[in-house]
Amino acid sequence: MPYRNHPLPVRLYLGIHDHFPARRSEWVLAGIMIAWGWLLIGPSPVFAQSNAWSQMAAMMSESSWGWFGIGIGAFRLLALIINGTFAGTWYGRWSPHVRALASFLTCFLWFQISFGLWVSDAATTGLAVYPGLLVLDAMNIVAATKDAAGMDKAVADDRP
């Protein structure tokens, strides 16, 4: 691996820097997910401010949704860091698979938000945003599964 001989902070920087352009939307969507979750666990109630969130509030508490979002976003960031920085390791081999899973989990959350907003009687601009995030992450699932298939093929071709 080209980063193996560098100290860890430099290795992390180079791995992220070199792979960021190809994974730009995954990084941004992970950041949005963490920020969304952070807002929900904050001191100001979000769900109580609008009927738009009533569907989600009926399923889980606001803080549970918040921690779920932060967990998925952090899991995704970790997968992206490993994918770009530790690709030559035994665990780096699985990072495209983990990226696909992280995108799938994030799609689940974008869908829950979009559906909840749709079925509420509240008019909200979120219906212009969250379905778009869902589509972006659906495209990330396709990209990550293609990367995973390529990794699987490369591993299978190296076997005697």
Rank of each mutant, 00 (worst) to 15 (best):
A102H: 03
A102V: 06
A102Y: 02
S103P: 02
S103L: 01
S103V: 01
L105M: 13
L105W: 07
T106V: 04
T106L: 14
C107K: 02
C107M: 09
F108A: 04
F108R: 01
F108H: 02
F108Y: 03
L109V: 14
L109R: 07
F111K: 00
Q112Y: 01
Q112G: 01
I113C: 07
I113V: 11
I113S: 04
I113G: 03
I113T: 06
S114Q: 00
S114Y: 02
S114K: 01
F115Q: 03
F115N: 05
F115S: 01
G116V: 00
G116P: 00
G116K: 00
G116W: 00
L117F: 13
L117T: 07
L117I: 03
W118V: 09
V119Q: 11
V119P: 01
V119D: 06
V119K: 08
S120G: 05
S120H: 08
S120Q: 09
D121W: 15
D121L: 14
A122S: 15
A122G: 12
A123S: 15
A123R: 15
A123E: 15
A123Q: 15
T124Y: 02
T124F: 01
T124G: 02
T124V: 08
T125K: 07
T125G: 15
T125E: 10
G126Q: 06
G126P: 05
L127E: 10
L127G: 14
A128F: 11
V129H: 04
Y130T: 12
Y130H: 12
Y130N: 10
Y130L: 04
P131Q: 08
P131N: 04
P131C: 04
P131S: 08
P131M: 06
G132L: 12
G132Q: 11
G132F: 11
L133E: 03
L133T: 00
L134F: 15
L136I: 11
L136Q: 07
L136N: 03
L136G: 02
D137M: 11
D137R: 06
D137F: 05
D137C: 05
D137L: 07
D137I: 01
A138Q: 11
A138Y: 10
A138K: 08
M139K: 09
M139V: 14
M139G: 05
M139Q: 12
M139E: 08
N140K: 10
N140W: 10
I141H: 04
I141P: 06
I141V: 14
V142W: 10
V142E: 08
V142Q: 09
A143M: 07
A143E: 06
A143G: 02
A143F: 03
A144C: 06
A144F: 12
A144S: 15
A144Y: 08
T145Y: 12
T145Q: 09
T145F: 12
K146E: 12
K146Q: 13
K146N: 12
D147C: 04
A148T: 02
A148Y: 06
A148G: 07
A149T: 12
G150V: 02
G150N: 13
G150E: 10
M151P: 02
M151Q: 15
M151Y: 05
M151F: 01
M151E: 15
M151G: 04
K153W: 09
K153M: 11
K153D: 13
